[in-house]
Design a protein around this nucleic acid. Sequence first.
DNA 1: CGTATAATTGATAGAAATCAAGTATCGTGG
DNA 2: CCACGATACTTGATTTCTATCAATTATACG
Lengths: 258, 258
Amino acid sequence: MAIAPGEEINDERGRKVISRLAGFVDLDPSEVQQLVALAGREYRFERGDIIRSENEHDLYLLIDGWAASAVIVEDGSRQLITANLPGDILGLPGLAVRDPVDTVIALTDVEVIGISPRQIGEAFAHSPRLAALMFLISQEERSLLMERLALMGQASALTRLSALILRMQERHAQIDRNTDASFFMPLTQRELGELIGVTGVHMNALLKELRERGIAVIKARKLTILDRDELIRIAGVSPWCRSSPSWLPCPEPPVEVR
Amino acid sequence: MAIAPGEEINDERGRKVISRLAGFVDLDPSEVQQLVALAGREYRFERGDIIRSENEHDLYLLIDGWAASAVIVEDGSRQLITANLPGDILGLPGLAVRDPVDTVIALTDVEVIGISPRQIGEAFAHSPRLAALMFLISQEERSLLMERLALMGQASALTRLSALILRMQERHAQIDRNTDASFFMPLTQRELGELIGVTGVHMNALLKELRERGIAVIKARKLTILDRDELIRIAGVSPWCRSSPSWLPCPEPPVEVR
DNA sequence: CGTATAATTGATAGAAATCAAGTATCGTGG
DNA sequence: CCACGATACTTGATTTCTATCAATTATACG
Protein backbone atom coordinates (compact mmCIF):
# COMPACT_ATOMS: atom_id res chain seq x y z
CA MET A 1 0.00 0.00 0.00
CA ALA A 2 1.19 3.49 -0.78
CA ILE A 3 0.53 6.58 1.27
CA ALA A 4 0.04 9.82 -0.55
CA PRO A 5 0.25 13.25 0.99
CA GLY A 6 -3.28 14.39 1.83
CA GLU A 7 -4.69 16.44 -0.99
CA GLU A 8 -7.72 18.65 -0.94
CA ILE A 9 -10.84 16.86 -2.01
CA ASN A 10 -11.80 18.65 -5.16
CA ASP A 11 -15.37 19.53 -5.99
CA GLU A 12 -16.22 16.71 -8.30
CA ARG A 13 -14.85 14.05 -6.01
CA GLY A 14 -16.34 15.82 -3.03
CA ARG A 15 -19.75 15.61 -4.59
CA LYS A 16 -19.34 11.88 -5.16
CA VAL A 17 -18.28 11.37 -1.60
CA ILE A 18 -21.19 13.09 0.07
CA SER A 19 -23.69 11.62 -2.40
CA ARG A 20 -24.39 8.71 -0.14
CA LEU A 21 -25.17 10.67 3.02
CA ALA A 22 -27.00 13.33 1.06
CA GLY A 23 -29.38 10.71 -0.29
CA PHE A 24 -31.65 11.08 2.72
CA VAL A 25 -31.67 14.81 3.33
CA ASP A 26 -29.94 17.85 1.98
CA LEU A 27 -26.79 18.54 3.91
CA ASP A 28 -26.12 22.13 4.73
CA PRO A 29 -22.60 23.55 4.45
CA SER A 30 -21.79 23.24 8.13
CA GLU A 31 -22.53 19.56 7.95
CA VAL A 32 -20.37 19.04 4.92
CA GLN A 33 -17.68 20.78 6.90
CA GLN A 34 -18.18 18.42 9.84
CA LEU A 35 -17.93 15.51 7.47
CA VAL A 36 -14.72 16.82 5.97
CA ALA A 37 -13.40 17.28 9.49
CA LEU A 38 -13.52 13.52 9.85
CA ALA A 39 -11.05 13.24 7.03
CA GLY A 40 -7.77 11.80 8.14
CA ARG A 41 -4.81 10.77 6.11
CA GLU A 42 -5.31 9.73 2.53
CA TYR A 43 -4.23 6.30 1.39
CA ARG A 44 -4.00 4.66 -2.01
CA PHE A 45 -4.29 0.97 -2.66
CA GLU A 46 -3.89 -1.12 -5.79
CA ARG A 47 -6.36 -3.59 -7.18
CA GLY A 48 -6.22 -6.73 -5.09
CA ASP A 49 -4.77 -5.08 -1.99
CA ILE A 50 -6.30 -5.69 1.39
CA ILE A 51 -7.52 -2.34 2.70
CA ARG A 52 -8.44 -3.64 6.11
CA SER A 53 -7.99 -7.22 7.13
CA GLU A 54 -10.04 -9.20 9.59
CA ASN A 55 -8.11 -8.26 12.69
CA GLU A 56 -8.19 -4.49 12.45
CA HIS A 57 -10.81 -1.94 13.42
CA ASP A 58 -9.88 0.94 11.16
CA LEU A 59 -12.48 2.80 9.15
CA TYR A 60 -12.11 4.32 5.73
CA LEU A 61 -14.16 6.65 3.61
CA LEU A 62 -13.91 5.50 0.01
CA ILE A 63 -12.99 8.43 -2.22
CA ASP A 64 -12.30 6.87 -5.58
CA GLY A 65 -12.45 3.39 -7.11
CA TRP A 66 -14.33 0.21 -6.24
CA ALA A 67 -13.84 -1.83 -3.08
CA ALA A 68 -15.59 -4.79 -1.53
CA SER A 69 -15.98 -6.43 1.81
CA ALA A 70 -15.43 -10.16 1.74
CA VAL A 71 -15.80 -13.03 4.16
CA ILE A 72 -13.33 -15.86 3.89
CA VAL A 73 -15.01 -19.15 4.71
CA GLU A 74 -13.31 -22.02 6.49
CA ASP A 75 -12.58 -24.01 3.34
CA GLY A 76 -10.80 -21.06 1.74
CA SER A 77 -13.57 -19.92 -0.57
CA ARG A 78 -14.57 -16.31 -0.46
CA GLN A 79 -17.93 -14.59 -0.39
CA LEU A 80 -18.08 -10.98 -1.48
CA ILE A 81 -20.61 -9.20 0.70
CA THR A 82 -20.94 -5.80 -0.95
CA ALA A 83 -19.36 -3.87 -3.74
CA ASN A 84 -18.50 -0.40 -2.45
CA LEU A 85 -18.40 2.81 -4.45
CA PRO A 86 -17.11 6.29 -3.57
CA GLY A 87 -18.96 7.74 -0.60
CA ASP A 88 -19.24 4.42 1.21
CA ILE A 89 -17.76 4.07 4.67
CA LEU A 90 -15.73 0.89 4.93
CA GLY A 91 -15.34 -1.11 8.09
CA LEU A 92 -18.27 0.01 10.23
CA PRO A 93 -19.59 -3.48 11.00
CA GLY A 94 -16.20 -4.35 12.41
CA LEU A 95 -16.68 -1.81 15.22
CA ALA A 96 -19.03 -4.13 17.05
CA VAL A 97 -16.97 -7.29 17.17
CA ARG A 98 -13.55 -8.11 18.52
CA ASP A 99 -12.56 -9.92 15.33
CA PRO A 100 -14.31 -8.35 12.34
CA VAL A 101 -15.88 -11.01 10.13
CA ASP A 102 -15.02 -9.24 6.91
CA THR A 103 -11.94 -8.19 5.02
CA VAL A 104 -12.06 -5.04 2.91
CA ILE A 105 -10.34 -5.38 -0.44
CA ALA A 106 -9.66 -3.10 -3.39
CA LEU A 107 -11.41 -4.18 -6.58
CA THR A 108 -9.69 -1.42 -8.55
CA ASP A 109 -6.97 1.02 -7.60
CA VAL A 110 -8.60 3.08 -4.87
CA GLU A 111 -8.19 6.18 -2.77
CA VAL A 112 -9.53 6.27 0.75
CA ILE A 113 -9.21 8.50 3.77
CA GLY A 114 -8.83 7.05 7.22
CA ILE A 115 -11.38 7.61 9.97
CA SER A 116 -10.73 6.52 13.53
CA PRO A 117 -13.41 4.95 15.74
CA ARG A 118 -12.70 7.85 18.09
CA GLN A 119 -14.02 10.27 15.48
CA ILE A 120 -17.22 8.28 15.24
CA GLY A 121 -17.64 8.83 18.95
CA GLU A 122 -17.06 12.55 18.45
CA ALA A 123 -19.74 12.64 15.81
CA PHE A 124 -22.25 11.06 18.20
CA ALA A 125 -21.32 13.53 20.93
CA HIS A 126 -21.27 16.72 18.87
CA SER A 127 -22.90 16.15 15.48
CA PRO A 128 -26.07 14.23 16.26
CA ARG A 129 -27.57 14.77 12.84
CA LEU A 130 -24.49 13.46 11.10
CA ALA A 131 -24.44 10.50 13.48
CA ALA A 132 -28.08 9.83 12.72
CA LEU A 133 -27.28 9.86 9.02
CA MET A 134 -24.51 7.33 9.48
CA PHE A 135 -26.97 5.28 11.49
CA LEU A 136 -29.51 5.51 8.68
CA ILE A 137 -27.02 4.44 6.05
CA SER A 138 -26.12 1.46 8.18
CA GLN A 139 -29.79 0.55 8.30
CA GLU A 140 -29.94 0.89 4.55
CA GLU A 141 -26.98 -1.46 4.23
CA ARG A 142 -28.73 -3.85 6.56
CA SER A 143 -31.84 -3.76 4.39
CA LEU A 144 -29.75 -4.41 1.31
CA LEU A 145 -28.05 -7.33 3.06
CA MET A 146 -31.42 -8.72 4.07
CA GLU A 147 -32.56 -8.61 0.46
CA ARG A 148 -29.35 -10.29 -0.67
CA LEU A 149 -29.75 -12.99 1.96
CA ALA A 150 -33.34 -13.64 0.95
CA LEU A 151 -32.40 -13.96 -2.70
CA MET A 152 -29.47 -16.19 -1.84
CA GLY A 153 -31.71 -18.52 0.10
CA GLN A 154 -34.76 -18.60 -2.12
CA ALA A 155 -33.96 -17.49 -5.65
CA SER A 156 -32.19 -19.01 -8.63
CA ALA A 157 -28.75 -17.84 -9.66
CA LEU A 158 -30.17 -15.98 -12.66
CA THR A 159 -32.57 -14.08 -10.42
CA ARG A 160 -29.74 -13.19 -8.02
CA LEU A 161 -27.60 -11.95 -10.85
CA SER A 162 -30.41 -9.84 -12.26
CA ALA A 163 -31.05 -8.26 -8.87
CA LEU A 164 -27.34 -7.62 -8.43
CA ILE A 165 -27.13 -5.82 -11.75
CA LEU A 166 -30.13 -3.65 -10.92
CA ARG A 167 -28.86 -2.66 -7.48
CA MET A 168 -25.43 -1.95 -8.93
CA GLN A 169 -26.90 0.34 -11.53
CA GLU A 170 -28.95 2.17 -8.92
CA ARG A 171 -25.93 2.64 -6.68
CA HIS A 172 -23.84 3.84 -9.56
CA ALA A 173 -26.50 6.36 -10.51
CA GLN A 174 -26.20 7.87 -7.02
CA ILE A 175 -22.65 9.00 -7.62
CA ASP A 176 -22.92 9.72 -11.32
CA ARG A 177 -26.13 11.39 -12.40
CA ASN A 178 -25.28 10.54 -16.00
CA THR A 179 -25.44 6.81 -15.35
CA ASP A 180 -27.95 5.36 -17.75
CA ALA A 181 -28.22 1.84 -19.05
CA SER A 182 -24.47 1.58 -19.47
CA PHE A 183 -21.75 2.12 -16.90
CA PHE A 184 -18.27 1.19 -15.75
CA MET A 185 -18.25 -2.13 -13.87
CA PRO A 186 -14.78 -3.53 -13.24
CA LEU A 187 -15.54 -6.86 -11.56
CA THR A 188 -14.39 -10.08 -13.16
CA GLN A 189 -16.84 -12.90 -13.74
CA ARG A 190 -15.28 -14.73 -10.85
CA GLU A 191 -15.84 -11.74 -8.56
CA LEU A 192 -19.43 -11.36 -9.72
CA GLY A 193 -19.85 -15.03 -8.92
CA GLU A 194 -18.44 -14.48 -5.46
CA LEU A 195 -21.09 -11.81 -4.92
CA ILE A 196 -24.05 -14.06 -5.67
CA GLY A 197 -22.55 -17.34 -4.51
CA VAL A 198 -21.82 -19.18 -7.74
CA THR A 199 -18.57 -20.28 -9.32
CA GLY A 200 -16.90 -18.32 -12.09
CA VAL A 201 -17.79 -21.07 -14.53
CA HIS A 202 -21.45 -20.83 -13.75
CA MET A 203 -21.38 -17.02 -13.81
CA ASN A 204 -20.07 -17.30 -17.34
CA ALA A 205 -23.09 -19.37 -18.32
CA LEU A 206 -25.46 -16.93 -16.64
CA LEU A 207 -23.96 -13.94 -18.45
CA LYS A 208 -24.21 -15.86 -21.71
CA GLU A 209 -27.89 -16.35 -21.09
CA LEU A 210 -28.49 -12.66 -20.34
CA ARG A 211 -26.49 -11.77 -23.44
CA GLU A 212 -28.31 -14.19 -25.75
CA ARG A 213 -31.69 -13.12 -24.45
CA GLY A 214 -30.73 -9.52 -25.15
CA ILE A 215 -31.11 -8.46 -21.52
CA ALA A 216 -27.66 -7.28 -20.47
CA VAL A 217 -24.08 -7.42 -21.68
CA ILE A 218 -20.70 -6.94 -20.04
CA LYS A 219 -17.92 -5.97 -22.38
CA ALA A 220 -14.59 -4.32 -21.66
CA ARG A 221 -15.43 -3.61 -18.00
CA LYS A 222 -18.63 -1.93 -19.08
CA LEU A 223 -22.06 -3.20 -18.11
CA THR A 224 -24.96 -2.41 -20.43
CA ILE A 225 -28.58 -3.07 -19.57
CA LEU A 226 -30.47 -3.73 -22.80
CA ASP A 227 -33.88 -4.75 -21.50
CA ARG A 228 -34.49 -3.23 -18.11
CA ASP A 229 -38.09 -4.42 -17.85
CA GLU A 230 -37.13 -8.02 -18.41
CA LEU A 231 -34.27 -7.69 -15.94
CA ILE A 232 -36.67 -6.39 -13.31
CA ARG A 233 -39.10 -9.18 -14.10
CA ILE A 234 -36.43 -11.85 -13.62
CA ALA A 235 -35.02 -10.20 -10.49
CA GLY A 236 -38.45 -9.84 -8.92
CA VAL A 237 -37.36 -6.80 -6.89
CA SER A 238 -38.74 -3.29 -6.73
CA PRO A 239 -36.70 -0.18 -7.40
CA TRP A 240 -34.78 0.83 -4.30
CA CYS A 241 -36.36 3.84 -2.70
CA ARG A 242 -35.10 5.58 0.41
CA SER A 243 -37.22 6.99 3.16
CA SER A 244 -37.45 10.70 3.83
CA PRO A 245 -36.98 10.70 7.57
CA SER A 246 -38.70 13.51 9.43
CA TRP A 247 -37.29 12.55 12.80
CA LEU A 248 -33.64 13.52 12.37
CA PRO A 249 -32.14 15.94 14.89
CA CYS A 250 -32.14 19.53 13.69
CA PRO A 251 -29.29 20.58 11.39
CA GLU A 252 -27.43 22.68 13.92
CA PRO A 253 -25.99 20.78 16.84
CA PRO A 254 -28.49 21.47 19.62
CA VAL A 255 -25.89 23.20 21.79
CA GLU A 256 -22.45 24.58 21.25
CA VAL A 257 -20.66 22.25 23.58
CA ARG A 258 -18.16 23.46 26.13
CA MET B 1 -53.28 -8.43 17.71
CA ALA B 2 -54.31 -7.56 21.20
CA ILE B 3 -53.36 -4.44 23.08
CA ALA B 4 -52.74 -4.75 26.74
CA PRO B 5 -52.58 -1.92 29.23
CA GLY B 6 -48.96 -0.92 29.74
CA GLU B 7 -47.56 -2.70 32.73
CA GLU B 8 -44.38 -2.02 34.61
CA ILE B 9 -41.47 -3.97 33.30
CA ASN B 10 -40.54 -6.18 36.19
CA ASP B 11 -36.98 -6.83 37.18
CA GLU B 12 -36.44 -10.17 35.59
CA ARG B 13 -37.89 -9.12 32.27
CA GLY B 14 -36.11 -5.79 32.52
CA ARG B 15 -32.79 -7.54 32.83
CA LYS B 16 -33.52 -9.59 29.73
CA VAL B 17 -34.45 -6.52 27.81
CA ILE B 18 -31.34 -4.50 28.51
CA SER B 19 -29.07 -7.52 28.12
CA ARG B 20 -28.48 -6.75 24.49
CA LEU B 21 -27.40 -3.13 24.90
CA ALA B 22 -25.49 -3.92 28.05
CA GLY B 23 -23.38 -6.40 26.15
CA PHE B 24 -20.94 -3.71 25.10
CA VAL B 25 -20.61 -1.60 28.20
CA ASP B 26 -22.19 -1.42 31.60
CA LEU B 27 -25.19 0.85 31.54
CA ASP B 28 -25.56 3.15 34.47
CA PRO B 29 -28.97 3.75 36.03
CA SER B 30 -29.61 7.02 34.23
CA GLU B 31 -29.15 5.25 30.93
CA VAL B 32 -31.48 2.48 31.85
CA GLN B 33 -33.93 5.20 32.73
CA GLN B 34 -33.46 6.82 29.32
CA LEU B 35 -34.05 3.49 27.71
CA VAL B 36 -37.20 2.92 29.69
CA ALA B 37 -38.31 6.39 28.65
CA LEU B 38 -38.46 5.11 25.08
CA ALA B 39 -41.06 2.62 26.14
CA GLY B 40 -44.39 3.26 24.53
CA ARG B 41 -47.52 1.21 24.61
CA GLU B 42 -47.26 -2.49 25.17
CA TYR B 43 -48.66 -4.89 22.61
CA ARG B 44 -49.16 -8.63 22.55
CA PHE B 45 -49.20 -10.82 19.49
CA GLU B 46 -49.90 -14.49 18.98
CA ARG B 47 -47.70 -16.99 17.24
CA GLY B 48 -47.94 -16.39 13.50
CA ASP B 49 -49.14 -12.79 13.74
CA ILE B 50 -47.51 -10.09 11.70
CA ILE B 51 -46.00 -7.59 14.12
CA ARG B 52 -45.02 -5.12 11.46
CA SER B 53 -45.69 -5.65 7.79
CA GLU B 54 -43.69 -4.42 4.84
CA ASN B 55 -45.38 -1.09 4.47
CA GLU B 56 -44.98 0.25 7.98
CA HIS B 57 -42.15 2.01 9.76
CA ASP B 58 -42.96 1.27 13.36
CA LEU B 59 -40.33 0.03 15.77
CA TYR B 60 -40.76 -2.39 18.61
CA LEU B 61 -38.64 -3.50 21.51
CA LEU B 62 -39.15 -7.20 22.02
CA ILE B 63 -39.95 -7.93 25.66
CA ASP B 64 -40.91 -11.56 25.69
CA GLY B 65 -41.10 -14.40 23.20
CA TRP B 66 -39.44 -15.13 19.88
CA ALA B 67 -39.93 -13.07 16.72
CA ALA B 68 -38.33 -13.06 13.30
CA SER B 69 -37.92 -10.76 10.38
CA ALA B 70 -38.75 -12.33 7.06
CA VAL B 71 -38.48 -11.38 3.44
CA ILE B 72 -41.17 -12.63 1.12
CA VAL B 73 -39.72 -13.39 -2.29
CA GLU B 74 -41.54 -12.84 -5.55
CA ASP B 75 -42.58 -16.49 -5.99
CA GLY B 76 -44.19 -16.56 -2.56
CA SER B 77 -41.47 -18.40 -0.69
CA ARG B 78 -40.18 -16.85 2.48
CA GLN B 79 -36.71 -16.34 3.86
CA LEU B 80 -36.33 -15.81 7.58
CA ILE B 81 -33.57 -13.27 8.14
CA THR B 82 -33.06 -13.35 11.89
CA ALA B 83 -34.62 -14.96 14.89
CA ASN B 84 -35.15 -12.26 17.52
CA LEU B 85 -35.10 -12.71 21.27
CA PRO B 86 -36.09 -10.36 24.09
CA GLY B 87 -33.98 -7.20 24.05
CA ASP B 88 -33.85 -6.98 20.28
CA ILE B 89 -35.19 -3.88 18.59
CA LEU B 90 -37.44 -4.83 15.69
CA GLY B 91 -37.82 -2.79 12.55
CA LEU B 92 -34.71 -0.60 12.53
CA PRO B 93 -33.64 -1.46 8.98
CA GLY B 94 -37.00 -0.28 7.75
CA LEU B 95 -36.20 3.27 8.85
CA ALA B 96 -33.94 3.78 5.86
CA VAL B 97 -36.24 2.72 3.05
CA ARG B 98 -39.64 3.87 1.89
CA ASP B 99 -40.91 0.29 1.67
CA PRO B 100 -39.20 -1.91 4.27
CA VAL B 101 -37.98 -5.16 2.73
CA ASP B 102 -38.84 -7.26 5.74
CA THR B 103 -41.91 -8.29 7.64
CA VAL B 104 -41.66 -8.89 11.37
CA ILE B 105 -43.55 -11.92 12.56
CA ALA B 106 -44.21 -13.59 15.90
CA LEU B 107 -42.69 -17.07 16.20
CA THR B 108 -44.29 -17.55 19.60
CA ASP B 109 -46.76 -15.46 21.52
CA VAL B 110 -44.84 -12.25 22.16
CA GLU B 111 -44.93 -9.01 24.09
CA VAL B 112 -43.42 -5.89 22.61
CA ILE B 113 -43.41 -2.19 23.36
CA GLY B 114 -43.74 0.33 20.59
CA ILE B 115 -41.04 2.89 19.83
CA SER B 116 -41.59 5.69 17.35
CA PRO B 117 -38.94 6.83 14.88
CA ARG B 118 -39.30 10.22 16.52
CA GLN B 119 -37.92 8.78 19.76
CA ILE B 120 -34.89 7.49 17.91
CA GLY B 121 -34.26 11.06 16.81
CA GLU B 122 -34.59 12.21 20.41
CA ALA B 123 -32.03 9.67 21.49
CA PHE B 124 -29.54 10.98 18.94
CA ALA B 125 -30.15 14.55 20.04
CA HIS B 126 -30.07 14.06 23.80
CA SER B 127 -28.63 10.63 24.65
CA PRO B 128 -25.59 10.28 22.43
CA ARG B 129 -24.23 7.32 24.31
CA LEU B 130 -27.48 5.42 24.02
CA ALA B 131 -27.62 6.32 20.33
CA ALA B 132 -24.08 5.07 19.87
CA LEU B 133 -25.06 1.79 21.52
CA MET B 134 -28.00 1.36 19.16
CA PHE B 135 -25.59 2.12 16.34
CA LEU B 136 -23.18 -0.52 17.61
CA ILE B 137 -25.87 -3.13 17.89
CA SER B 138 -26.89 -2.40 14.34
CA GLN B 139 -23.29 -2.95 13.28
CA GLU B 140 -23.30 -6.22 15.18
CA GLU B 141 -26.44 -7.26 13.34
CA ARG B 142 -24.77 -6.32 10.10
CA SER B 143 -21.78 -8.47 10.96
CA LEU B 144 -24.06 -11.36 11.78
CA LEU B 145 -25.88 -10.88 8.48
CA MET B 146 -22.59 -10.82 6.63
CA GLU B 147 -21.64 -14.11 8.20
CA ARG B 148 -25.01 -15.60 7.32
CA LEU B 149 -24.69 -14.40 3.75
CA ALA B 150 -21.20 -15.85 3.42
CA LEU B 151 -22.34 -19.22 4.74
CA MET B 152 -25.39 -19.15 2.47
CA GLY B 153 -23.23 -18.53 -0.56
CA GLN B 154 -20.33 -20.81 0.16
CA ALA B 155 -21.24 -23.48 2.68
CA SER B 156 -23.27 -26.68 2.66
CA ALA B 157 -26.64 -26.90 4.32
CA LEU B 158 -25.21 -28.92 7.21
CA THR B 159 -22.58 -26.26 7.85
CA ARG B 160 -25.19 -23.51 7.78
CA LEU B 161 -27.39 -25.41 10.22
CA SER B 162 -24.48 -25.99 12.58
CA ALA B 163 -23.56 -22.31 12.54
CA LEU B 164 -27.19 -21.37 13.12
CA ILE B 165 -27.42 -23.59 16.16
CA LEU B 166 -24.21 -22.15 17.62
CA ARG B 167 -25.25 -18.54 17.12
CA MET B 168 -28.67 -19.29 18.53
CA GLN B 169 -27.16 -20.78 21.66
CA GLU B 170 -24.85 -17.80 22.10
CA ARG B 171 -27.71 -15.36 21.69
CA HIS B 172 -29.86 -17.29 24.12
CA ALA B 173 -27.05 -17.30 26.66
CA GLN B 174 -27.07 -13.48 26.58
CA ILE B 175 -30.54 -13.28 28.01
CA ASP B 176 -30.40 -16.34 30.21
CA ARG B 177 -27.15 -16.86 32.02
CA ASN B 178 -28.26 -20.40 32.82
CA THR B 179 -28.32 -21.41 29.19
CA ASP B 180 -26.06 -24.36 28.77
CA ALA B 181 -26.10 -27.03 26.15
CA SER B 182 -29.87 -27.24 26.25
CA PHE B 183 -32.42 -24.49 25.76
CA PHE B 184 -35.91 -23.59 24.61
CA MET B 185 -36.09 -23.30 20.82
CA PRO B 186 -39.61 -23.06 19.46
CA LEU B 187 -39.05 -23.02 15.69
CA THR B 188 -40.54 -25.75 13.53
CA GLN B 189 -38.32 -27.63 11.12
CA ARG B 190 -39.86 -25.66 8.30
CA GLU B 191 -38.96 -22.38 10.00
CA LEU B 192 -35.41 -23.54 10.67
CA GLY B 193 -35.22 -24.38 6.99
CA GLU B 194 -36.44 -20.92 6.08
CA LEU B 195 -33.56 -19.50 8.14
CA ILE B 196 -30.82 -21.35 6.29
CA GLY B 197 -32.51 -21.58 2.90
CA VAL B 198 -33.55 -25.21 2.66
CA THR B 199 -36.95 -26.89 2.52
CA GLY B 200 -38.59 -28.41 5.53
CA VAL B 201 -38.04 -31.86 4.08
CA HIS B 202 -34.34 -31.32 3.78
CA MET B 203 -34.11 -29.77 7.23
CA ASN B 204 -35.60 -32.97 8.55
CA ALA B 205 -32.80 -34.96 6.93
CA LEU B 206 -30.17 -32.58 8.31
CA LEU B 207 -31.52 -32.85 11.84
CA LYS B 208 -31.60 -36.61 11.48
CA GLU B 209 -27.92 -36.56 10.59
CA LEU B 210 -27.01 -34.37 13.59
CA ARG B 211 -29.07 -36.63 15.80
CA GLU B 212 -27.56 -39.87 14.50
CA ARG B 213 -24.04 -38.50 14.75
CA GLY B 214 -24.77 -37.53 18.34
CA ILE B 215 -24.13 -33.82 17.75
CA ALA B 216 -27.43 -32.12 18.52
CA VAL B 217 -31.05 -33.00 19.08
CA ILE B 218 -34.31 -31.09 18.99
CA LYS B 219 -37.11 -32.56 20.99
CA ALA B 220 -40.29 -30.97 22.32
CA ARG B 221 -39.21 -27.43 21.35
CA LYS B 222 -35.94 -27.94 23.20
CA LEU B 223 -32.57 -27.86 21.47
CA THR B 224 -29.74 -29.84 23.03
CA ILE B 225 -26.14 -29.62 21.91
CA LEU B 226 -24.46 -32.95 22.60
CA ASP B 227 -21.08 -32.47 20.95
CA ARG B 228 -20.19 -28.80 20.84
CA ASP B 229 -16.68 -29.34 19.47
CA GLU B 230 -17.94 -31.30 16.50
CA LEU B 231 -20.66 -28.72 15.90
CA ILE B 232 -18.04 -25.96 15.83
CA ARG B 233 -15.88 -28.02 13.52
CA ILE B 234 -18.72 -28.51 11.03
CA ALA B 235 -19.84 -24.88 11.28
CA GLY B 236 -16.33 -23.56 10.77
CA VAL B 237 -17.07 -20.38 12.69
CA SER B 238 -15.42 -18.86 15.75
CA PRO B 239 -17.24 -17.99 18.93
CA TRP B 240 -18.92 -14.62 18.62
CA CYS B 241 -17.05 -12.02 20.62
CA ARG B 242 -18.02 -8.39 20.93
CA SER B 243 -15.65 -5.48 20.95
CA SER B 244 -15.12 -3.31 24.01
CA PRO B 245 -15.41 0.11 22.44
CA SER B 246 -13.39 2.84 24.11
CA TRP B 247 -14.71 5.58 21.87
CA LEU B 248 -18.30 5.89 23.12
CA PRO B 249 -19.49 9.30 24.29
CA CYS B 250 -19.33 9.75 28.04
CA PRO B 251 -22.21 8.27 30.08
CA GLU B 252 -23.82 11.58 31.06
CA PRO B 253 -25.39 13.50 28.20
CA PRO B 254 -22.91 16.31 27.51
CA VAL B 255 -25.44 19.00 28.38
CA GLU B 256 -28.81 19.12 30.03
CA VAL B 257 -30.70 20.39 27.03
CA ARG B 258 -33.29 23.10 27.27
C1' DC C 1 -61.82 -38.13 19.41
C1' DG C 2 -61.21 -35.95 15.17
C1' DT C 3 -58.78 -32.62 12.54
C1' DA C 4 -55.02 -29.75 11.38
C1' DT C 5 -50.26 -29.21 11.64
C1' DA C 6 -45.69 -31.08 11.93
C1' DA C 7 -42.37 -34.70 11.23
C1' DT C 8 -40.57 -38.56 8.63
C1' DT C 9 -39.16 -41.39 4.74
C1' DG C 10 -38.32 -42.80 -0.09
C1' DA C 11 -38.06 -41.88 -5.16
C1' DT C 12 -37.08 -38.76 -8.82
C1' DA C 13 -35.70 -34.39 -11.04
C1' DG C 14 -33.08 -30.21 -11.54
C1' DA C 15 -29.62 -26.72 -10.56
C1' DA C 16 -25.06 -25.73 -9.89
C1' DA C 17 -20.32 -27.57 -8.61
C1' DT C 18 -16.43 -29.72 -10.18
C1' DC C 19 -13.26 -31.32 -13.51
C1' DA C 20 -10.88 -30.68 -17.72
C1' DA C 21 -9.27 -28.41 -21.70
C1' DG C 22 -8.90 -24.89 -24.76
C1' DT C 23 -9.20 -19.75 -26.28
C1' DA C 24 -8.94 -14.82 -25.66
C1' DT C 25 -7.05 -10.71 -23.61
C1' DC C 26 -3.82 -7.79 -21.44
C1' DG C 27 0.23 -5.98 -19.45
C1' DT C 28 5.14 -6.15 -19.71
C1' DG C 29 9.79 -6.64 -21.00
C1' DG C 30 12.99 -7.76 -24.64
C1' DC D 1 6.63 -3.62 -31.88
C1' DC D 2 6.24 -8.18 -30.92
C1' DA D 3 6.51 -12.26 -27.97
C1' DC D 4 5.57 -14.11 -23.77
C1' DG D 5 3.30 -15.20 -19.55
C1' DA D 6 -0.46 -14.47 -16.61
C1' DT D 7 -5.03 -13.81 -15.97
C1' DA D 8 -9.59 -14.07 -17.53
C1' DC D 9 -13.03 -16.18 -20.29
C1' DT D 10 -15.45 -20.09 -22.67
C1' DT D 11 -17.26 -24.65 -23.36
C1' DG D 12 -18.47 -29.53 -22.53
C1' DA D 13 -18.84 -33.83 -19.48
C1' DT D 14 -19.77 -35.64 -15.06
C1' DT D 15 -20.99 -35.52 -10.19
C1' DT D 16 -23.16 -33.77 -6.06
C1' DC D 17 -26.41 -31.54 -3.51
C1' DT D 18 -30.92 -30.09 -2.69
C1' DA D 19 -35.75 -29.46 -4.39
C1' DT D 20 -39.86 -31.55 -5.47
C1' DC D 21 -43.30 -34.99 -5.26
C1' DA D 22 -45.81 -38.42 -2.79
C1' DA D 23 -47.24 -40.99 0.99
C1' DT D 24 -47.25 -42.17 5.91
C1' DT D 25 -46.87 -41.45 10.81
C1' DA D 26 -46.74 -38.58 14.87
C1' DT D 27 -48.22 -34.73 17.63
C1' DA D 28 -50.92 -30.98 19.27
C1' DC D 29 -55.13 -28.93 19.97
C1' DG D 30 -60.01 -27.80 20.47
